[in-house]
Design a protein around this nucleic acid. Structure first.
Length: 634
RNA sequence: GGCCCCGUAGCUCAGCUGGAUAGAGCAACGCCCUUCUAAGGCGAAGGUCAAAGGUUCGAAUCCUUUCGGGGUCACCA
């Protein structure tokens, strides 16, 4: 509709304004709810050209549109805004079109280039937490959005399965796990613990012992006992200690942290962990066995968590398999002169000309760093998928700098696809108590949270739900659907880019802008339709009069395709969430005010049922994009 | 300190490619279930859009500065 008006004005611009006009000055917006009309044209840009008042200009253009487009019934000019009223028959035609389309709003699949969406990408040394939930729900949803917008999508993750952090858990398990009566160390089988939880337990244990050891070292330094330490270390300690003199609290804390780091580097535990990493890189059989065993526990645990989350992956990448390729590419780049080597043998890239720093890409001992493996993984992916057009990395915004550098390196290496890569950077999830810190035990475990949310949904649904005649199995799956739906919606309704606050009480709310509220509306419509027993196939006659409440709904339904497009372009599920909430609120207002089943006029009743059915359909299609299922009853 | 992000109602968030009187939810207050699921609806209340300048017919939205919060600048990942 906007397009046809635009074209009309452009085609007759000379006639109307005495000159050619630029398309950009034709600006439409939604008409305010408190004035009459469906579509508003902003008149201000035309005023100068016509040299008359906004009212005169608006009237002239308005009359012209009404004369030429039959679907525009009338117009009204209010202080520089031309409000156009669209004929009800137009809206009814739209409703019929929407009604016929079972995947209304979705673009035909695979009609656009292939996109890879990376998300989750956990370390294999500890269980998934609340931050991962935001990441996973976001990544999954963005993948769905891109599919609905016509792209072919490959969902992936890279598993950070190697590195010093993994060795820490391995070492701690090896050293500290108690033996049971059979002489076995702790395993998921003999403890009943989920694999990722067991490994995480030892990661925490490592940290505990490690800190205790560092503390002891600092104490001995404080007591003037410097035996067994390198003179340089002692010198550094003395330098840092004396620097504390007369400094404020914050500066002293910073220096204390540096002293702590210094002491940590002297611990036997860290030294042993480093030795283990070297052994691992040398493929020492015993270390390798321990590594594969413990990783397999973690993967089993993750699988359970992913299943509860309702997310999946088409292709997995393991850092342990891509870091070598990364090293090769760095060496290739060194030949090409993209990178340079320092005296100690470490390899760097100089990005100062791009306003960034020098960045390490290979350690002096030749081992890979984070960047090395990310380069390898990216190249690996484009090798694996010949039709791949771009990669979207769902990673927290604390890594903004890393990805800026990564994309720049790939570009300098001459990969044509480098410019297509994007970092879907999302904000951290804060708790009311502050930031989540795994070391301080303030993380919210993903499994625990999901379980709590489902239990809470069960409790509240038993209280107020409509569960008669439902089997135990159906109930369980309903509680799950409501609990998880609420959690996903809660995490996705906020703009991904923004840091967000996770309030445990709000996350299980059922009222207001929540997942269950939307699910409830869907269930209520389904109940209505079930009772009606009407066929929704036959088109509605366009002669029916529409109430403003009905037009409002059709208008919103009509926007759905462009909402999907916008959400996909912006990589923002929040756009979908906000739209759906708006639709549901508008529908509820209608539902409350207008009789549907009890309407005596059959044609009106049928139209309202078709309208309701399509609201339910759009709710379902929209929620599917968020990974949220909707129930038939609740 | 350099660079990046953020600041909208008591709280959590929309609105940001400039357009009409800045919107929701939660909390607090009042009303509506012998009409279809009240997990709902209606009403009232709540704002110096961090502050100050600038651009513009018009600024929450764009630019500059200041203040406040966060992130990042590792031979960690």
């Amino acid at each position: 509709m906007e397009q046809s008006i635009k074209q009309l004005i452009l085609a007759h611009s000379t006639e109307l304004f005495g000159q050619e006009i630029d398309a950009s000055i034709i600006q439409f917006q939604k008409t305010r709810k408190d004035v009459e009309g469906d579509l508003t044209l902003v008149i201000f840009p035309f005023v100068k050209m016509l040299k008359c008042s906004p009212i005169e200009a608006g009237s002239k253009i308005g009359q012209f549109i009404v004369d030429h487009i039959s679907a525009i019934d009338k117009f009204e000019v209010v202080s520089g805004f031309l409000n156009l009223t669209i004929a009800t028959s137009f809206w009814l035609d739209q409703l019929n079109v929407i009604n016929k389309d079972v995947t209304f709003g979705y673009v035909a699949e695979n009609s656009k280039p292939t996109v890879m969406v990376e998300y989750s990408s956990p370390n294999t040394n500890k269980p998934l937490h609340l931050g991962h939930l935001r990441n996973n729900f976001l990544g999954f949803s963005v993948a769905e959005l891109l599919k609905a917008n016509g792209h072919k999508v490959v969902k992936t993750q890279v598993i950070n399965d190697r590195g010093i952090h993994i060795c820490k858990s391995m070492l701690a398990w090896d050293k500290f796990s108690p033996l049971n009566e059979k002489g076995e160390r702790e395993t998921p089988e003999n403890t009943g613990l989920k694999g990722d939880k067991l490994v995480g337990k030892y990661y925490v244990e490592f940290d505990k012992q490690f800190n205790a050891e560092a503390k002891q070292i600092i104490e001995s330094w404080d007591n003037g006992n410097y035996d067994n330490f390198h003179p340089e270390t002692i010198e550094e300690y003395n330098r840092l200690t004396s620097a504390k003199e007369g400094k404020d609290e914050k500066a002293v804390k910073g220096l204390d942290d540096k002293i702590k780091d210094l002491a940590k580097n002297q611990t036997t535990l860290l030294r042993e962990a480093k030795e283990m990493l070297v052994k691992w890189e040398a493929k020492d059989p015993q270390t390798y066995l321990l590594w594969t065993t413990m990783n397999s526990w973690v993967y089993k645990g993750f699988d359970v968590t992913y299943k509860s989350m309702g997310v999946d992956f088409d292709q997995l990448y393991y850092e342990s398999e891509t870091y070598l390729l990364g090293k090769d590419i760095v060496l290739e780049g060194l030949q090409k002169g993209v990178f340079f080597k320092k005296d100690d043998g470490s390899v760097w890239i100089d990005l100062t000309a791009d306003g960034l720093d020098e960045k390490l890409v290979l350690r002096s001992d030749g081992t890979a760093v984070y960047m090395t493996q990310d380069i390898g993984t990216a190249v690996d992916r484009f090798n694996d998928f010949s039709d791949l057009n771009s990669i979207i990395y769902t990673v927290g915004n604390e890594q903004d700098y890393h990805f800026k550098v990564l994309f720049l390196i790939l570009e300098k290496m001459g990969y044509s696809w480098a410019k297509q890569c994007a970092h879907l950077s999302y904000g951290m999830v804060d708790l009311p108590s502050g930031k989540m810190k795994s070391r301080e035990g303030t993380v919210v475990d993903a499994d625990d949270l999901m379980q709590e949310v489902i239990e809470s949904a069960a409790e509240m649904t038993k209280e107020r739900g409509h569960l008669d005649g439902m089997s135990e199995e159906e109930r369980t799956s309903l509680f799950n659907l409501i609990g998880m739906g609420g959690l996903k919606y809660y995490l996705l309704k906020v703009d991904p880019k923004k840091r967000m606050l996770f309030n445990p009480e709000e996350s299980i709310e059922l009222n207001g802008n929540t997942g269950p509220f939307i699910q409830y509306t869907h269930a209520r419509i389904k109940s209505l339709l079930a009772k009606s027993g009407i066929s929704l196939e036959t088109p509605i006659q366009s002669s029916i009069e529409l109430l403003s409440e009905e037009v409002e709904i059709i208008k919103l339904l009509n926007e759905f395709p462009s909402v999907i497009e916008e959400a996909a372009t912006q990589l923002s599920p929040a756009v979908i969430a906000n739209y759906t909430y708006e639709l549901v609120k508008t529908y509820n207002h209608f539902y409350q005010a207008i009789p549907i089943l009890i309407e005596e006029d059959e044609a009106k009743k049928e139209m309202r049922l078709v309208l309701s059915a399509n609201v339910a359909k759009v709710i379902r299609l929209a929620m599917r994009l968020l990974g949220v299922a909707v129930p038939e009853r609740m």
